[in-house]
Simulated assay, not measured.
Amino acid sequence: MRKLHWLFMAVCLAVMPVLQSCDDDEGYSIGDFTPPLWATVRVTGNAFYLDCDVWGTLWPVNTDLWWYEPVDGKRVITMFNPLSDEFDGYDHAVKILSLQDVLTKEVETLTPETEEEFGNDPVLIFEGDISISGGYMNIIFMQNLPSGTKHRISLVRPQDDAELYGEDGYIHLALRYNDYDDLTGLRKPGAVSYNLNSLNVTSETKGIKLKINLEKNGEVELTFDLVVTGDNTKNIQNLDLSEMQLK
């Protein structure tokens, strides 16, 4: 059965984000800027570009990004001023206004040996703060900060492929959280993005079912269909991840 690329989940987004100021008939204005958007860093030679989930490939024309150390495959939340379309083989040339790295991880395998390390402590996630785009599962949550030990947050799959790829047409995963019994009661935003490209998605795959232990609802199973509609950026406005402590 033909394997499909996870990127089609982002392509199915029905609404492109609206620029914060109006552009004229001839292109973009220097005052145009996007809301915060999910993107993936792609390193090419001594430079890098962004593969934005809803805008496509972005070539940064900034001369003031010397401070940024790009890592290929790293997920980021970015805002930018689009300057032109179809620039030198990229979808857009942009001036990056903000660039915030997000913890980026792979799907891991849950085994009897790793059960304790992955943990299953409750996590505070609000409705709408889990999305799938660009081949990644993006999760925003409120972390109860530790005093010294970084918490571990993991997206895990079962060992058995028969359990992973259920007869119901869904891929079965679980979000696991280990707070190591180190909690201060101080809440700050946390974020993580999981690369889903190791999963075998076929034309018969309906979506993902995610088991998760929520602080407010206990253990639940959430369903995410592959056909995504709407705007998945509304919950990352003014998001400051500088104080999260995760691994």
Rank of each mutant, 00 (worst) to 15 (best):
147 S>G: 14
71 V>W: 02
103 L>N: 07
175 L>N: 03
97 L>S: 06
120 N>A: 08
191 A>R: 02
150 K>I: 13
3 K>F: 11
44 T>G: 09
216 K>W: 09
9 M>F: 15
200 N>A: 14
33 F>A: 15
236 I>Q: 06
194 Y>C: 02
14 A>I: 13
175 L>A: 01
223 T>S: 10
196 L>W: 03
219 E>F: 10
148 G>T: 07
74 K>C: 13
192 V>M: 04
8 F>T: 05
176 R>M: 09
46 N>D: 13
105 K>V: 11
176 R>L: 07
247 K>S: 15
183 L>H: 07
39 A>R: 02
224 F>T: 05
128 G>E: 00
192 V>Q: 04
167 E>Q: 11
149 T>A: 11
48 F>V: 02
190 G>W: 03
177 Y>N: 06
177 Y>M: 07
195 N>Q: 08
109 T>D: 04
214 L>V: 11
83 L>I: 13
84 S>E: 13
70 P>C: 01
110 L>K: 01
179 D>A: 11
55 W>N: 09
204 E>W: 11
137 M>V: 05
129 D>E: 13
80 F>Q: 05
240 D>V: 00
25 D>C: 11
228 V>F: 10
41 V>C: 03
229 T>N: 09
78 T>L: 06
128 G>M: 01
207 G>E: 00
93 A>D: 07
116 E>G: 10
61 V>R: 09
151 H>F: 00
210 L>E: 03
173 L>I: 01
89 G>W: 02
230 G>D: 01
25 D>P: 08
95 K>V: 14
54 V>E: 15
63 T>S: 12
53 D>V: 06
101 D>W: 04
54 V>P: 10
188 K>V: 15
226 L>H: 07
177 Y>P: 03
31 G>V: 11
69 E>A: 12
83 L>Q: 15
188 K>H: 15
60 P>C: 08
107 V>E: 02
39 A>Q: 01
120 N>Y: 08
242 S>F: 05
128 G>F: 02
57 T>H: 06
162 A>G: 13
24 D>T: 14
198 S>L: 06
194 Y>I: 03
204 E>L: 15
78 T>K: 04
57 T>Q: 08
96 I>S: 04
241 L>G: 00
190 G>Y: 03
18 V>Q: 12
46 N>P: 09
138 N>A: 04
3 K>R: 08
188 K>T: 14
64 D>P: 09
131 S>M: 08
48 F>T: 00
103 L>F: 08
120 N>F: 12
237 Q>R: 14
80 F>D: 04
190 G>R: 01
203 S>C: 12
129 D>A: 10
244 M>G: 06
124 L>V: 10
165 Y>H: 06
155 L>V: 03
233 T>K: 07
23 D>L: 12
205 T>A: 01
126 F>S: 13
90 Y>R: 03
235 N>V: 04
149 T>Q: 12
82 P>C: 05
15 V>I: 13
188 K>F: 14
17 P>H: 00
199 L>G: 05
71 V>C: 06
27 G>C: 06
166 G>Q: 01
183 L>W: 05
86 E>A: 15
74 K>A: 14
238 N>H: 15
30 I>F: 14
80 F>Y: 07
80 F>I: 06
53 D>M: 10
4 L>S: 03
59 W>P: 10
18 V>R: 11
91 D>K: 07
3 K>I: 08
212 I>Y: 05
80 F>W: 08
235 N>H: 06
